[in-house]
């Protein structure tokens, strides 16, 4: 029964990873760049939610509702001010600039909040769970996170396929120049893609901060998990990202069942195995 529990927890954890990953996937799809500070922005969102909750007395959920649009705006601005410029400089510039950004965010958070681990206090919900049997119980929070992840992915999918801007984002991902020829303002589109990425990663950061403690240094690990979910699932496919997140979560919880020290390693090994034997990912794009 402990195994069943591990599997269920792993799948639910995968939802969180997919939430971390979908922004990475969209930005890479549209702009062909990876924001190395992706994970750090999630941590930044968690700290902001912490401060908002602290200052206003609002619950963490409401603090998240405030923080997410703020991060979306930050994303749009960051794209217009910094990333757009770096795109014009050369292929290395964005990576280096976002890496510098990652170092800046980590250390600014360190200065502001110290290295102490913190958590978003959600009261009883943290321990409340749905008991299915003696050994198997599903935490409400994990369930909520998973459902949120699926809702976000479905929403994104609908946005990309049904709206005018969404279609143009896909077109621009296929061929940026041809997209400009039909009227795409690439800078604005890229800004939208970045703000979607920031909003989703902020949501992921806040959800993460409710279930476990966080400190300024954990951003890079979030980036790595998100990246692994994207590659395992297959580049450029949102459903692939969800599957990738679930595979990663499963690998971690099941291996953790054997030996807690194996948790991280197992996730990485799955990632490397996919890279070695199925580099296109489990669910490559264009299978819809």
């Amino acid at each position: 029964m402990a195994w069943v529990n591990a599997v269920v927890q792993g799948i639910l954890l995968g939802g969180l990873y997919a939430l971390f990953a979908c922004g990475l996937s969209i930005v890479f799809g549209v702009m062909r760049i990876v924001n190395l500070a992706h994970g750090d922005f999630a941590v930044l969102a968690a700290f902001l939610a912490y401060s908002v909750a602290d200052a206003t007395g609002l619950g963490p959920f409401w603090a998240g509702v405030i923080v997410i649009p703020v991060l979306a705006a930050v994303g749009y601005l960051l794209q217009r001010v910094l990333l757009q410029r770096s795109l014009g400089v050369g292929p290395l510039a964005t990576l280096l600039a976002t890496f510098g950004l990652s170092v800046i965010i980590q250390n600014v958070l360190l200065q502001t909040y110290s290295a102490d681990a913190r958590a978003l206090d959600i009261g009883r919900l943290a321990s409340a769970s749905l008991r299915i049997s003696g050994q198997l119980s599903i935490s409400y929070l994990a369930l909520i996170t998973f459902v949120l992840a699926v809702v976000v992915l479905v929403g994104l999918q609908l946005y990309l396929s049904r709206t005018r801007t969404g279609r143009m984002l896909r077109a621009s991902s296929d061929d940026p120049e041809a997209a400009r020829l039909v009227g795409a303002d690439s800078r604005h589109l890229y800004g939208i893609a970045t703000s979607i990425a920031f909003a989703t990663v902020a949501l992921a950061g806040v959800m993460f901060a409710m279930r476990s403690s966080f400190d300024p240094s954990i951003g890079p690990t979030r980036l790595i998990f998100a990246f692994e979910a994207v590659v395992i699932g297959g580049l450029g496919s949102l459903w692939g990202t969800l599957v990738g997140g679930m595979v990663l979560g499963l690998a971690q919880t099941v291996a953790g069942q054997f030996d807690p020290a194996l948790t991280l390693l197992a996730g990485h090994v799955i990632f490397l195995a996919v890279l070695a034997f199925r580099p296109q990912g489990l669910i490559p794009a264009r299978s819809t």
Binding site: L82, R85, S86, V89, G90, L92, A93, T94, L96, A97, F99, G100, L101, S102, V103, I104, Q106, N107, V108, L110, Q111
Partner: peptide, 21 residues
């Protein structure tokens, strides 16, 4: 200056990468 020094380095990297490639 502890982490301020790293913040400065990070800023130099951002500026260098984008404005002084």
């Amino acid at each position: 200056y502890g982490s301020w020094y790293l913040i400065l380095l990070g800023a130099l990297a951002v500026i260098g990468a984008v404005w002084l490639p």
